[in-house]
Simulated scan of single mutants.
Amino acid sequence: MSSSSSIHSSPNRASRIKEKLEKELEPVELVIEDVSYQHAGHAGMKGRGTDEETHFNLKIVSKGFEGMNLVKRHRLVYDLLREELDSGLHALSIVSKTPSESTR
């Protein structure tokens, strides 16, 4: 597993996302990329600072996705991150795979 140890304090959104996904999905691979800087000027970002964590690319490989189609996988991730989405996470690009799919 490429995941690091648990995070006890969650100073930023990326850390909170990581903590929630690791706890619930036990990923064998988890990559979280903050791409908020690429969206600083668009309409959904008006009035927000340039340092806010609002847009992320997420790659997650987990056995927890086995037997799920893509829509169900994404719904699961969105459900796990509902609190973040309700508190300023604006967009999430998700690549979700099972371990067998990631080796192809």
Rank of each mutant, 00 (worst) to 15 (best):
S93H: 14
R73H: 01
R75K: 14
K97I: 00
Y37R: 06
T98E: 09
S15T: 11
R48S: 03
K97W: 00
F65L: 08
L70R: 13
S62C: 12
S6K: 12
G67F: 06
N69A: 08
E22F: 04
S4M: 10
V61P: 01
R73E: 03
E84K: 07
L58D: 05
S6F: 07
E84S: 14
L30I: 12
K23M: 06
V95S: 03
M68L: 15
K63A: 15
S4H: 15
D79W: 08
H39G: 01
S93C: 13
G41D: 09
T98K: 05
T98R: 04
K46Q: 15
H39E: 02
V35F: 01
E22H: 10
D34Y: 00
A91N: 00
K46S: 11
H55N: 03
S36F: 01
E84C: 13
F65Q: 04
A43I: 07
S36I: 02
L25C: 11
E66C: 12
V71M: 15
S100A: 11
Y78M: 04
S5H: 15
E26L: 09
F56K: 03
S10W: 10
S102T: 05
S2N: 11
P99V: 05
L89F: 00
S62N: 13
D51M: 13
L85N: 02
H42L: 00
S100M: 11
T54C: 03
P11Q: 09
G67N: 08
